[in-house]
Design a protein around this nucleic acid. Sequence first.
DNA 1: TGTACATCAGTGAACGCGCGTTCACTGATGTAC
DNA 2: TGTACATCAGTGAACGCGCGTTCACTGATGTAC
Lengths: 170, 170
Amino acid sequence: VRSDARDNRERVLAAARVEFGRQGPRASLNKIAQQAGVGPGTLYRHFPTLQALLVAIVADDVAALCAEGRRLLTHPAPEEALLTWLHAVAVHATAMGGLVASEMAAVSSDPALSDVHAEIRGTGAALWERVASPPGDIDDLLALAAALAWASPHDPDRLDRLFTLAFRAL
Amino acid sequence: VRSDARDNRERVLAAARVEFGRQGPRASLNKIAQQAGVGPGTLYRHFPTLQALLVAIVADDVAALCAEGRRLLTHPAPEEALLTWLHAVAVHATAMGGLVASEMAAVSSDPALSDVHAEIRGTGAALWERVASPPGDIDDLLALAAALAWASPHDPDRLDRLFTLAFRAL
DNA sequence: TGTACATCAGTGAACGCGCGTTCACTGATGTAC
DNA sequence: TGTACATCAGTGAACGCGCGTTCACTGATGTAC
């Protein structure tokens, strides 16, 4: 593994995070490469597919979310645990301006992406099952969290307000 | 007013509704024109701006929504009236796959579009003020309805489930 | 009713643009001796 | 430690594509007589 390769990979990832955060789904791969100070070919060498790039972008966040999910499994109040976790999911989903959310929503053909999807779904389901009479199903709750994030681009306060509104049921 | 002009206008509108419904925000104006059996120039003659087209598309729906809103102002149960109206808004927002919703969310520079926005906002506000202790504010409630629609493309059942979840507070 | 004409809607090839993507070539890196 | 080399990452011009948009021209329509 060459050291410059690792550096470039990181630079592309950082630029992609910034651009997707700014532009949402309309961000362009060429611009990401350019902003990373890298040729387009380099971006493709590391991430042959848009989905590969997305998976790499969210991999850390997903790992963190799942870790927190497992931690919350031992929380004494199941409802509060689920709520806390869903809030974390919504906050994370905000960062990508709906791109990740929409890619996640549809079960993807890319195996890596559907693995990621299965991971969050599984974590959520575990938290959900602990609640005595849980509302809806976990897919709906996740979709709802993503929807809130989509409706609150660059506006954490609105996200919190909508979250309180929408999940008042819990 | 020439008769073929009116016909073509209607054909473009119909095609636009179909395409935006199918493709969401990614729908292309050239394809809309083509599917309407009309040259691109004709589309531009009638709708010089994407926003003009959007306004024309939603004008009927907005009028209907506002009419229903006024009717619901005399409904004996204010909470139920607001809920019913918000549901109608969400159903309508579904049709455009998030395009209308996102265009509406940001206050637009196009005067016609912001007029439309003001109309629904005003109607909603009137319904909202009748509720004894209304949750959030009307902008948040409208954003929430739009978000639900965005999260439920081509899936009325899911929309209903999410709606029940999110607005259980009322 | 019939006709000549002015108006203005319709046409669609063409433009520039930025996108995603490729690939023949260059050159930096890590390794073996 | 120093050097020669093989590997493979990086480059960036170039491709084809579809987009939004324009405009010189055509022709259908409504109207005036």
